Computed example of a mutant assay.
Amino acid sequence: TFIEYKATLEGIQVEYVNPAHTSLTCPKCTERNKAKDRKYRCSCGFEKHRDIVGAMNIRYAPVVDGHS
């Protein structure tokens, strides 16, 4: 709510994204894999910390009519 309030003051539109499975989906090939510990590894060769993977997927999630 606070972020939405501050964004509105600056004229920035807030879009809500469903965070489900964002740290399990590879942002490179979209294959779903379970992260081991804090490291996410995909068979396509992509490797990152699972929180970064989740943030990348949220950042690029398609939003249609305000729903992801």
Rank of each mutant, 00 (worst) to 15 (best):
V64P: 02
K6H: 12
N33D: 08
V14T: 09
K28A: 14
V14Y: 01
H21I: 09
Y60Q: 03
R38A: 10
A61W: 03
L24T: 07
A20T: 07
T30N: 13
K6D: 10
N18K: 10
T30H: 10
P19E: 05
I3G: 02
S23Q: 07
V17H: 05
G54A: 15
Q13F: 08
E47F: 08
M56E: 11
R38D: 06
T1A: 15
V17M: 01
P19I: 02
K36G: 13
Y5P: 02
K48H: 14
C42Y: 05
T25W: 02
E10A: 10
D37W: 11
Y40C: 02
R32E: 01
E10D: 09
G11D: 03
E10S: 10
M56K: 07
T8V: 02
D51K: 10
K36R: 12
A20C: 03
E15W: 11
K6A: 12
E31I: 07
V17C: 01
D65W: 15
E47A: 14
A35P: 14
D65Q: 13
L9Y: 07
H67S: 10
A61L: 01
R50V: 06
V17P: 01
N33Y: 15
T8E: 04
I52T: 14
Y5W: 07
N57W: 05
Y40Q: 03
D37Y: 15
V53H: 05
K28S: 09
K48E: 15
L24Y: 00
I12F: 04
G66C: 07
D65E: 13
K28C: 07
T1P: 13
M56V: 12
F46E: 07
S43E: 15
A7D: 01
M56H: 06
G11T: 00
V63A: 11
E47W: 06
G54Q: 06
T22C: 06
T8N: 14
V17G: 06
T22P: 00
V14F: 01
I58H: 02
N33A: 09
L9S: 12
V64H: 10
I58G: 08
S68I: 04
Q13L: 09
A55V: 03
R59P: 00
G66E: 05
P19L: 02
E10Y: 11
P62R: 13
